[in-house]
Each structure stands twice: as structure tokens, then as C-alpha cells.
Amino acid sequence: MGTLGVVKHWSLVSARPQPTGSRHATLVVVLSVLAGIAVVGRVLSADPIAYGVPVWPFADTAEQAESRVMTSVASAARTSAANEGNLKKIPESVTATDVEVLRTRARHDGLAVWLLLRLEVPAVGTRCREVVVSGATPVEVNSRHVTC
């Protein structure tokens, strides 16, 4: 008779995906992203001016006004460094009606100047920032909020 009498039936078997496993993974990813966004938001709102994001929701009106004052300080420091060719005259150049230099310290090679500034921020009052002006060209201006 031969082999025609015995016919085998082959079928492809595939497992059905478990819906709880993929939902669980999606939930973990979404929660991780939300936690990451919350951490970044908290860090940025700690000192939005230093991180360069003086905008809502990270900065309030007072911090936006302080950012405007710090923008004028950074501009004066960069202009002074460009005109003088060094950083020695920066403490005098950043002093204005709303900015008072409380303390100055220069690095021995003249490539960095640390300043403690008291800022009179409109509609807020007095705030203090520690400012570091460093570099030759271009000049970098970085700051952080400190208590007065």
C-alpha cells in the first residue's frame, strides 16, 4: 500500500500574548517617565535662573525679575571683558543702581572672578547671588542663589 495511508497533520502553534504582562510593562514605563519629569522639574525649580529656565512653571514672577537683573549683569561682565581684554574691571562694571558687589575674589592667573552680589529686584526686594565669571573669550557667567 505504501506511505499514502499514513498522512500526518502538522499545525503551527503560537502562544497567545499575556495581556497583563504588557499592561504591567506599560504601567512601569509610564510611571518611570512621570517620576523622571517630576525630578527634573524639582531640580529646575530649585534655581531656574542658574539652569537657564526662568519661565513658568519653574520660575515665579520674582525669579523672572531677578533673571532680568542677572541678564544685565552678565551683559556688563561680557562687555567689560571684551573691552579690557581681562577680567580685572568686572566688579566695577557690574555695579549699577540695582546691583551691589559685596565681595570679590580673583583667581591668581586672572582667568576667573568670583563675586557676591546683592540685587535689588523690582517688586520683590533684596536677593543675593554668587557669580563666577571665567574664561578669556568667550566669557562664561554662571551664578547660584545664596542667602544674604
Score class of each variant (00 low, 15 high):
109 D>K: 08
114 W>C: 06
145 H>A: 15
95 T>N: 10
42 R>S: 15
29 V>H: 02
92 E>D: 14
11 S>D: 13
7 V>I: 05
89 K>Q: 11
91 P>L: 06
95 T>P: 02
109 D>Y: 03
61 T>W: 02
110 G>I: 03
93 S>I: 06
36 G>Y: 00
39 V>N: 08
47 D>M: 01
128 C>W: 00
19 P>G: 00
14 S>M: 02
35 A>E: 01
4 L>W: 06
72 S>I: 00
124 V>N: 03
125 G>K: 04
18 Q>N: 15
35 A>M: 13
100 E>Q: 11
123 A>D: 10
80 S>T: 13
116 L>W: 12
125 G>H: 01
105 R>E: 14
18 Q>D: 15
103 R>V: 12
7 V>C: 06
92 E>V: 05
35 A>P: 00
116 L>D: 15
82 A>K: 03
129 R>Y: 00
148 C>Q: 07
20 T>K: 12
93 S>K: 03
139 V>G: 04
22 S>H: 05
100 E>F: 01
131 V>W: 09
33 V>R: 00
85 G>C: 11
4 L>I: 13
76 A>F: 04
96 A>V: 02
62 A>T: 04
112 A>R: 04
131 V>S: 03
25 A>Y: 02
5 G>W: 06
40 V>F: 04
113 V>S: 08
146 V>T: 08
106 A>L: 03
77 A>F: 09
121 V>D: 07
100 E>K: 13
88 K>F: 13
80 S>M: 10
89 K>H: 01
36 G>F: 01
9 H>C: 09
15 A>I: 01
91 P>Y: 04
138 P>K: 00
58 F>Q: 06
99 V>D: 09
94 V>F: 07
67 S>W: 02
124 V>S: 07
16 R>Q: 13
40 V>G: 00
22 S>I: 14
106 A>G: 08
45 S>A: 14
4 L>M: 13
125 G>S: 05
69 V>C: 02
112 A>I: 00
67 S>N: 10
69 V>G: 00
83 N>S: 14
